[in-house]
Each structure stands twice: as C-alpha cells, then as structure tokens.
Amino acid sequence: MLKKRLKIALALAVLGTTSSANALVIGAGSATGNCFPFGCSYWTPTYQQVYDASAFDAPLPISTLSFYRSIDTWSGNAPNTGIYTFSLSTTTAAVDELSANATANLGGNVLTVFTGALPTDVAPGSRMDIFLDNAFNYDPLFGNLLLSINVTGLASSGNTLSFDAVDNASDGTSRLYMAGGLRDSTGLVTGFNEALSQPVEHDQLANPVPEPTSLALFGLSLAGLFGAYRRRK
C-alpha cells in the first residue's frame, strides 16, 4: 500500500513541476490599460492578436490564457457579457503586419479552444483566467501564434474595464480590431498556462496547482513517505 502511495505522490510532484515549466507571459515593457476586447463593446466583429514565435523557447501545449488588470483600478469589476469564442492557430503574419482581412491571418490549423462567457468579477490587481475547452499544441517552428476572438450577444457591463496592454518595439505582439480592419502595435499582456502554476486569482479556478510553498511542504511529505518505505523494506 505504501509503495502505491509513493508512486502516486511522485506522479503528482512531476505534474506540478511540468505545469510550472510550461508557463509563459508575453508583453514586456511598461503596460497601460486597454478595454479591447473585454471591457468595451466597439471593437467588433473580430479581435485578433499575433505573438512572435521567438518568444516561445519550445513547443507549448496551451490549455489556459490569462489577462491582467494591474493598471486599471478606477472602473468596475465586470467584463462585457456575451458568448465569446476564442480560436488559436499559427500564422504567417508578422507582428505589426497583420492583414486587414482577418480571415487571411488564420493558419490552416485554426482550432476553436473556448466558447462561453467571461468571468463576472475581475478585481483590480488580479488576473482573468480562461480555461480552454480544447488545448492547442503550438510549435513556434511553424510560424507566429494567432489568437482570434469573436462574440455573440455582446453587451457592455456598464464599465470601461481595461486590461494590461503593451505598445513598444520589444513587446512581441500586435492586434487587429473593429470593422474595416483597424490595426495597431498594441497588444494585451497575455499569460499562457499561468493558471496552472500560479495561485488562485478568482473563482473560475476550480483545480489550482499548489503554490511553491505548498509544493515544498509536499516535497517534505514525499521524503517522509520514501523514508518510511525504505525502513519497511
């Protein structure tokens, strides 16, 4: 029985280490606040954001996306209502060179990864985590990463809610928004798999991975189990 428990504990420890290693945030430099596409309603029909492949060191299975609210402290906490659809694909479009035609930016491997409503409360200084319905296996060798967002039944929550955004030469991201294909070099600071390795930020997180302190305590318990197993042998 003890041997079985030891195997389970080792498997959980490996899982926690893997989750932390696969987390990445893109958006360097000084951040500002921007309401597209979660905190204002005049960006439709499509929002796209491209991320430079050079920001990814290796292939990455993406299972959560995170957006940050450290700059905006003056408005309410509720994002827009409506059913959001997120898609991911590789793209040949470069950062700051998205086509005005959103369809032309999509790669052949486009995958719908999330359909649903946004969290109802994102407090200042916190993070909005989107848990994907389908993981996307991204390989930077095949091109840049493209996030596409559409929404049905969009309605303003009454707040001009802003999330952290960057606009500088080294941020590695840019966007397309609004009818007519308006484009600029701004992009939301975006976390990939951050929700798997960082503490709970709001109630959308149902099964958080332990914080580093918890993992350390877990490691001590694991060592105790291993010692007990050796003594019994």
Score class of each variant (00 low, 15 high):
residue 186 T to W: 15
residue 219 G to R: 08
residue 99 S to W: 02
residue 24 L to Q: 11
residue 203 D to E: 14
residue 179 A to P: 02
residue 119 P to H: 10
residue 123 A to M: 09
residue 95 V to P: 09
residue 197 S to L: 03
residue 91 T to W: 08
residue 48 Q to A: 04
residue 165 A to V: 14
residue 36 F to K: 00
residue 222 L to A: 06
residue 19 S to P: 01
residue 2 L to P: 08
residue 165 A to S: 13
residue 157 S to H: 07
residue 113 V to W: 01
residue 116 G to F: 05
residue 228 A to T: 09
residue 50 V to K: 07
residue 171 D to H: 13
residue 167 D to A: 15
residue 41 S to L: 07
residue 115 T to C: 00
residue 205 L to C: 10
residue 110 V to L: 06
residue 117 A to T: 10
residue 8 I to N: 06
residue 94 A to E: 12
residue 72 D to N: 14
residue 87 S to A: 15
residue 47 Y to A: 00
residue 62 I to D: 08
residue 208 P to S: 04
residue 5 R to H: 14
residue 92 T to I: 01
residue 129 D to G: 08
residue 171 D to A: 14
residue 62 I to V: 15
residue 49 Q to V: 04
residue 155 A to P: 00
residue 159 N to Y: 02
residue 59 P to D: 12
residue 40 C to Q: 11
residue 197 S to M: 09
residue 113 V to N: 06
residue 111 L to A: 13
residue 116 G to H: 03
residue 45 P to S: 13
residue 76 G to N: 04
residue 160 T to V: 04
residue 40 C to I: 08
residue 116 G to I: 03
residue 59 P to I: 11
residue 191 G to A: 08
residue 21 A to S: 11
residue 223 A to D: 04
residue 139 D to Q: 03
residue 48 Q to K: 05
residue 71 I to V: 15
residue 29 G to C: 07
residue 205 L to D: 15
residue 125 G to C: 11
residue 12 L to V: 06
residue 98 L to I: 02
residue 58 A to F: 06
residue 72 D to T: 03
residue 205 L to Y: 00
residue 119 P to M: 06
residue 83 I to T: 12
residue 87 S to W: 10
residue 198 Q to T: 14
residue 193 N to D: 13
residue 227 G to F: 11
residue 61 P to V: 11
residue 80 N to L: 02
residue 176 L to I: 04
residue 139 D to F: 13
residue 89 S to Y: 05
residue 148 S to I: 00
residue 56 F to R: 14
residue 91 T to N: 04
residue 185 S to M: 12
residue 59 P to T: 11
residue 38 F to I: 02
residue 204 Q to T: 15
residue 123 A to S: 11
residue 182 L to E: 04
residue 139 D to S: 03
residue 128 M to H: 04
residue 100 A to T: 14
residue 198 Q to F: 07
residue 76 G to P: 03
residue 194 E to V: 06
residue 162 S to K: 13
residue 57 D to I: 02
residue 191 G to L: 09
residue 73 T to L: 04
residue 56 F to M: 03
residue 212 P to K: 11
residue 146 L to G: 02
residue 122 V to I: 14
residue 134 N to E: 13
residue 60 L to D: 03
residue 20 S to V: 10
residue 178 M to S: 15
residue 225 L to M: 15
residue 198 Q to P: 00
residue 93 A to L: 05
residue 227 G to S: 12
residue 167 D to C: 09
residue 209 V to Y: 08
residue 88 L to G: 01
residue 194 E to D: 11
residue 39 G to C: 02
residue 71 I to D: 07
